[in-house]
Amino acid sequence: MAERLLFFLLALIVVSTAVGVVTNRNPVRSALLLVANFFSLALLYFLLSAQFLGVLQIIVYAGAIMVLFLFVIMLLNLGSPEPATFSEQGYRRPLAWLIALGMFALLVSQALVVAGTPPAQADPQVGTARTIGYALFTEWSFAVVVVGVLLTVGVIGSILLARRRSA
């Protein structure tokens, strides 16, 4: 019962902050709401007995990625609210509603298929850094190398992109 109550509260926060991110006109407020969203998602990960990934979510998403977002917003002066006019893009709003409802209906219909699945007995050591680290360096070692290459290429690419041409 306590777990359900906790899930309901966290889901409420996640849903309201996600809607806030999209409806807010001020990018800085969107970013701060996104931080709250990531935090409550991290708590949901704890509820799913994924402690290591919950901590990682807070460090990587709520920490590093959000700092990057806010930094670019401040650097480029993008903090001004966007104008409310939608006159020339009148088709966008119905299109967005269509996409949203269609996607939600499709995904929920798939969720109902698996509704009866009983929860397996979660192994007490499933979410620990030890178990995940062991799996990463044995079963998934090739994928780890690939992600490492991807991150290196991403860092080099962004440095090359952001460098001033004259320098």
Binding site: M1, A2, E3, R4, F7, A11, V14, V15, A18, V19, V21, V22, P27, L44, L47, L48, L78, E82, R92, R93, L95, A96, W97, I99, A100, L101, M103, F104, L107, V108, Q110, A111, L112, V114, A115, T117, P119
Partner: peptide
């Protein structure tokens, strides 16, 4: 103790995904 059903998590995640998709379409920043 009764745990949270799988479909609850999936519905929440479907909602999050739909909200994100709407944002990509309607936002201009």
């Amino acid at each position: 103790m009764e745990s949270v059903p799988l479909s609850a998590y999936l519905t929440l995640s479907a909602f999050l995904f739909a909200v994100g998709a709407v944002g990509v379409v309607i936002k201009r920043n």
